[in-house]
């Protein structure tokens, strides 16, 4: 399977990464090579194999409904590139 530039652009949009035309060009070649390599997986018959989304045989890990101490708002906002009062601020969302 290969990947065309339109797909790369769509995927880059989903990943919210702006690609310059030269980057797209370069990426297209690199992804082509990588996907070509990855294609070897299609040689295997995996129909009967269970997917290992987890390698650990553990399940049902839960926490009790006990409150902990939250961060102070100042601490939560300490790293914010832009804030207003106790809020994080982002460019206006137009719906």
């Amino acid at each position: 399977m290969s990947i065309d530039k339109e797909t790369i652009n769509h995927v880059a949009h989903l990943a919210r990464i702006e690609l310059q035309p030269n980057e797209l060009e370069k990426l297209s070649g690199e992804l082509h090579a990588i996907l070509g390599f990855i294609d070897k997986l299609s040689n295997l018959n995996v129909e009967q194999v269970k997917p290992a989304s987890h390698i650990l045989p553990i399940s049902n890990v839960l926490r009790e409904d006990q409150p902990h101490i939250s961060l102070f708002p100042q601490k939560a906002l300490e790293n914010a590139p832009s804030k207003k009062g106790n809020f994080f601020s982002v460019p206006k969302i137009i719906e």
Binding site: R63, D65, Q66, P67, H68, S70, P73, A76, G85, F87
Partner: peptide, 21 residues
């Protein structure tokens, strides 16, 4: 009492960004 994945309170109407971790 607490959020789905952490121990922060679910109380309504608190000062903005105070029930966070």
């Amino acid at each position: 009492k607490t959020k789905a994945f952490c121990g922060c309170s679910t109380d309504f109407g608190k000062a903005p960004n105070s029930n966070v971790c």
